[in-house]
Amino acid sequence: MNASGIKFGLGVYTTLFLVFLYGPLVVLAILSFQTGPEGGPQFPIIEWSTYWYKHLFGLTPPSRIAPLPIDQGLGRSMLLAMMTMVVSTILGVTAAQAFRRKFTGSGVVFYLIVLGMMVPGVLVGLGMALVANTLGIERHWWGTAFVLHVVYTFPFAFLVMLAIFNRFDSSVEEASWSLGVSPARTFRKVTFPLIFPGVLSAMLFAFTLSYDEFSRTLFASGRDLTLPLAIYGTFSVEVHPNVFAFGVLTTLFSFALLSVYAVLMGLSVRRAKRIAVQEEA
């Protein structure tokens, strides 16, 4: 067999591989336009409609199918993801800043931090529930679940920032000090603007990971459900196309988030290349 034949074969295979990756999502998207409330989550499509999208927002007449408990869950998940994003980015930046100097024990600390993204959610979730039970702490999504989200996302932010600082030329900071600028102000005026693209990526990572996280939340949050927990709740019952419609909407939301990130990234790159004289001039 010659090389171009192999290349062709692998190309066809890769196409099939992408079909495998996307197939279920495409089917899900199609079925979300099934008619309701009598249409089920399967083919054939009886009639195309946006019934299940309306159903999600409570715009349909009451039927035997209960609406997804997403309104409050959405708010909680957004707030939780925001909190997680802020805290884990701050922790990630400070820890990576510390790793710019070599110190003994850096290996242990490195693995301690990375452990946070390796240990499965069920295990830390269970452990946290046990700690909370023993100490008599009430479990809440904004408390016990929040700290676990940070345990999970902080390592990602840390690794992103570590990679950024690896390529960072610290002589610009020294130049700033030698001009009489204090280290704190140097960080704000020089270091931070230069690492900002990295910080943005760390924030994006933390937000999306937290927003989608459910195995840690399952044990560590109390009665109030976050969005993924609300979806997880549908696993044990009959699935209706409203879940599919919801899936389509969350995917669109993710893309919106990604576009915001891309725009911010583009702006910060443009700002770096900017030609105009600054506002102080």
Binding site: V172, A175, R271, E280
Partner: peptide, 15 residues
């Protein structure tokens, strides 16, 4: 070690 995010003028005014 010029500040890459600042213009020539702002580099000089920075200190």
């Amino acid at each position: 070690a010029l500040f890459p995010h600042l213009s020539v003028y702002d580099n000089i005014a920075f200190g």
